[in-house]
Amino acid sequence: MAHTHSFHEEEAHGSALGYIAGFVLAVLLTAASFGLVMRGMLPPQAAMGALAVLALVQIVVHLVFFLHLNTSSGQRWNVMALVYTAVAALILVDGTVWVMHNVSMNMMSR
């Protein structure tokens, strides 16, 4: 039987060790976030900043270990699609907050 090549054969899939490392990192980051909030280690403003940093690190862990995104040339389009999606979501959320703020300010001034 002839062997046909597909795009999926070129993609690198993770090993069991990679999945376990990603899982352990994700659990540690989740536990750190939970402990930070439950123990009240930081003032509220600092806790929000620390939680945001922990969340961003966890996003990177998931992208690298589970979605296998990296900087190789084969992943370039996937990374570009991810960046486009993130920028579009940021514009959508920021635009919505901006419009709601302006509507609120205009309604309260009357």
Rank of each mutant, 00 (worst) to 15 (best):
A21K: 13
A21N: 08
V24T: 14
V24D: 10
A26F: 15
V27S: 09
L28C: 14
L29G: 09
T30N: 06
A31F: 02
A31R: 09
A31G: 03
A32S: 15
A32F: 03
A32C: 04
A32M: 10
S33A: 15
S33E: 12
F34S: 03
L36Q: 06
V37F: 05
M38Q: 14
G40M: 03
M41K: 09
M41Q: 06
L42S: 02
P43E: 12
P43S: 13
P43T: 11
P44S: 08
Q45A: 12
A46I: 14
A46G: 03
A47C: 15
M48N: 14
M48V: 13
G49V: 02
G49R: 12
G49Q: 01
L51I: 13
A52D: 01
A52C: 13
A52Y: 11
V53F: 13
V53D: 01
V53M: 15
L54T: 00
L54C: 04
A55Y: 15
L56E: 09
L56K: 01
L56S: 14
L56I: 09
Q58W: 00
I59V: 12
V60R: 12
V60F: 15
V61T: 04
H62L: 15
H62A: 13
L63Q: 11
L63E: 11
L63K: 10
L63F: 05
